[in-house]
Design a protein around this nucleic acid. Structure first.
Length: 412
RNA sequence: CGGGAGAUGGCAGAGCGGUUGAAUGCACUGGUCUUGAAAACCAGCGAGGGUCAUACCUCCGGGAGUUCGAAUCUCCCUCUCCCGGCCA
């Protein structure tokens, strides 16, 4: 959630920055107005409450001493009506405030370039040259080695589900294990968490209330399938105050991810690029504010090095304001080269949400005497399915066979 | 799915409807003592808002009610635990 105080104190700057994310100034203005009104009403209410409290205490004393209570009682009753009235006003304002605030995305970091959509993202670095082929490389959905079975996925569930078989299934498992081990060596502690979470958890990381349509909900249960491990892993620390000396906390987690892909109709309908269920190894960090930039870079390097170790050509891309996700202040995507498709495609996305999620999820740390909000970061180590097909396309031979990258051989 | 119990500060655990934001113990922090540590002793120690700082307000799972006054009484919801059934 947005820091309302920032909005009150430095309205113009916040407006300017949020323009990058297409937030209307009127909305922010409304939010500010309500917040100030709320503050004012609350002060009046609190004064009334203070008076009421003091008199109620007196009442007890008078009653014990046998003094006259009748007039005091009348006074209290009268005052009570006023308190109740004001209280409902304050409550209404509070509800209005949170409902608007919940719709406002995080403030982009100053380093985020302006831009409308993914076409305005900025390439920062190219790593490894794309492999060259002396034949025309196929796209993964045209490869006929029996690893991927799209029809079976449809039979079992519906479109955008895929069944794996033989070495395809095995490679998928190898990738998961390899990545977890790789991340562990980089200081990320492995965790394992539920794939089903409640509403509070999804609110903590910002998927709810705004993006309910993108989630698979369990009928009649108020529970949802997780769209990414970021959700449960970050929320491990929801409502907690962490000891300063425990930070930064760096975690890695394998999970299945479930997304409705609402609004993606017609995009990437072929192959295994965009699925309703996919495997992913995730990185999540919780840091002090002054550590988050360093850990962010650390996470980007970790994912990039992972790709390098797999021999996959890729590039780092800095997302522009318009392409930035709801909770992110800053995001770097890693895009891997797909020779069959002849283009780079996202395989990892690493974001610093600063204190945006921490404010919602109430994740704090003790800074001496004071409790302060932490920074939370998340990023794919790599999406397993996309890594699998990246290997298929990059390591394909003319005879249709696929070479296994050296580092994975021990895991097969 | 059937039967029972419960939800209070980091944990454990008190709390006749009125100076209880909450006893006590543990943990934690600071100090004394010690070459150092432990022990002992002294002190501090929930969260959010508000303020320059106080004051002050809110919070004892969540919501509604009774009352001048609710952690304490009533109702609803949620969750947890135990017993039984089912089961990886």
């Amino acid at each position: 959630m947005l820091d309302i105080k920032l909005l009150q104190n430095d309205f113009d700057t916040i407006c300017e920055k949020l323009r990058k994310k297409k937030v209307k100034e009127e909305t922010l203005d409304e939010l500010k107005t309500i917040s100030l009104e709320l503050k004012k009403e609350k002060k009046v209410l609190e004064e009334l409450q203070a008076e009421q409290n003091a008199k109620s205490k007196l009442f007890g004393v008078y009653a014990r001493e046998g003094k006259d209570i009748v007039s005091l009682k009348a006074e209290l009753s009268q005052n009570k009506t006023k308190v109740l009235e004001l209280n409902s006003i304050v409550k209404t304002l509070e509800e209005k405030l949170t409902s608007i605030a919940n719709e406002i995305p995080n403030i982009p970091d100053d380093s985020v370039p302006d831009g409308k959509d993914e076409n305005d993202n900025v390439e920062i670095e190219l790593i490894l040259a794309p492999a060259t082929f002396d034949f025309t490389p196929k796209e993964h959905w045209d490869m006929d080695n029996g690893w991927l079975d799209f029809e079976k996925g449809v039979k079992l569930a519906k479109s955008r589900f895929t069944a794996l078989r033989g070495d395809g299934a095995k490679l998928s498992r190898a990738l998961i294990n390899y990545m977890l081990d790789f991340n562990a060596k980089r200081g990320f502690c492995e965790v394992s968490v539920p794939y089903i979470v409640n509403r509070e958890t999804l609110e903590g990381t910002g998927q709810l209330p705004k993006f309910e349509d993108d989630l698979f909900k369990i009928d009649g249960e108020n529970l949802f399938l997780i769209p990414t491990a970021e959700v449960p892993v970050t929320n491990l620390f929801r409502d907690e105050i962490i000891n300063e000396n425990e930070l930064p906390i760096k975690m890695t987690c394998y999970s299945e991810c479930f997304r409705k892909e609402a609004g993606s109709a017609g995009r990437d309908t072929r192959g295994m690029i965009r699925q309703h269920q996919f495997s992913k190894v995730e990185l999540v960090s919780i840091t002090k504010p002054d550590q988050s930039e360093e850990v962010f870079k650390d996470m980007v390097e970790c994912a990039s090095d992972l790709l390098t170790s797999l021999g996959l050509a890729h590039r780092k891309v800095m997302l522009c304001g318009g392409d930035l996700g709801f909770s992110a202040a800053k995001t770097i995507d890693l895009e891997v080269w797909f020779p069959g498709q002849n283009r780079y495609r996202e395989i990892s996305s690493i974001s610093n949400t600063m204190d945006f999620q921490a404010r919602r999820a109430k994740i704090r740390y003790k800074d001496g005497k004071k409790n302060r909000l932490v920074h939370t970061l998340n990023g794919s180590s790599l999406a397993i399915g996309r890594t699998l097909i990246a290997i298929m396309e990059n390591y394909q031979k003319e005879d249709g066979s696929i070479e296994i990258p050296e580092v994975l051989k021990a895991y097969m």
